[in-house]
Computed example of a mutant assay.
Amino acid sequence: MNKQILLVGPFPPPLGGISVHNQRLHQLLENESFKVTKVSTHNPNRNRLLNIFELLKQINRYKGNLIHLHVSAFESFVFVIPFIWLILMCKKDKKLVVTIHSGRFLSVYNKFSSINKLIISFFLKNTNHVIAVSSELKFFLMEEIGIPETKISVIPAFLPPDKNANDSDLRKVIDKRKKNVVIAGALKELYGFDVVIKAIKTDSNLLNLYNFIFVFYMDSDPDYAKQILNDCNKLGIHFFREMDSKDFISLLNLSDVFLRPTTTDGDSVAVREAIYLGKCVIASDSVERPDRVHTFKTSDPVSLINVMYNVLNKQEEKNIHDFNQNIKSIIKVYKKLNI
């Protein structure tokens, strides 16, 4: 098996579900003796056109024969696809694996123009293998786009983190008299910080029971960010900006509950991290969630309040799942392509 691979997608910074996945995948593949070349599709120090040019240049120069591309919902990537495909058509020895990470792909695809739908469907149908992070996404790819089931694998995006990071600086925000609950995401309505704020304002007793800790990362909506930060200051909610992945795992490890109030979602890496760490997980029912997740009605603060009272004294079951299975499944895909 040829163990050269080109990993294409976002890498930290900024911190995010896909970039953390790619960072861990890079390390785990190197642990398995793969020679990994990585190309980041998001470089905050370069403008977008230069990022695209560098991406295409790296793909064109790559001497190996396996490329693994990671995308969210294709929103900012669709016009790059024809150029990638043109390069691959000129290099017949190349094999392409595409992982689609976001459950938003279903709704985003349906809103695309006919031309963009044609570009994406042609690209995915001619990709050697597609990894979907959920069964719902796999079904959509089969039924709506027409990709054969044999070319799709369902592999959750979660890859195990290092549990042994330093947590000494984070303990100051932990309140041992209460349940510590962590909420993380970009300062955008999608991530549901406003739903949590509304729940607290509706039932102020939550502040006596729970110590809320917000973690903000990536880009933001300025007006939404201003309102949420103002509410955090008024309510005395701790918050962090741009926390790195190791510190985030440390914070999760110190906490009791992880809350994911998103209005839509994919296979959230942070949800699976919290499950891996044995934490109570509460999440919106915007998508199908993993076992052991306590769900509330999306964007409904009253439903969230009810769930938070229901889980207050609940003991979580011990994990028995093999969390190394996902990396094994990814490598199995590579082997299937006879790389």
Rank of each mutant, 00 (worst) to 15 (best):
Q4I: 08
P10N: 07
P10S: 07
F11V: 05
I18A: 07
N22S: 08
N22R: 01
N31L: 09
R46Y: 07
R48L: 09
L49P: 02
F53D: 10
F53R: 13
I59L: 02
Y62A: 04
N65K: 15
I67K: 06
I67T: 06
V71S: 09
S72A: 15
V78N: 08
W85E: 14
W85F: 15
K91W: 10
K91I: 00
D93H: 14
T99Y: 01
H101M: 06
G103R: 01
F105Y: 03
F105L: 05
V108L: 13
V108D: 11
S113N: 11
I115A: 13
I120C: 05
L124R: 04
I131W: 09
V133M: 03
V133E: 08
I152P: 05
I152Q: 02
I155S: 04
I155W: 05
K163M: 15
N166M: 10
L170I: 05
L170N: 09
V173F: 14
I174N: 07
D175Y: 10
V181L: 14
I183P: 02
V196H: 03
K198R: 11
S204E: 12
N211P: 01
V215F: 05
N230P: 03
D231V: 00
N233A: 13
R241W: 13
S250V: 02
L259A: 06
G266L: 06
I275T: 03
L277F: 02
D285N: 13
V293H: 04
T295W: 00
F296Q: 09
F296K: 05
T298E: 00
D300F: 02
D300N: 11
V302H: 15
L304H: 04
L304P: 09
I305Y: 09
N310Y: 12
V311D: 07
N313V: 13
I320F: 15
Q325T: 14
Q325W: 12
Q325L: 14
N326F: 08
S329F: 04
I331S: 07
K335N: 15
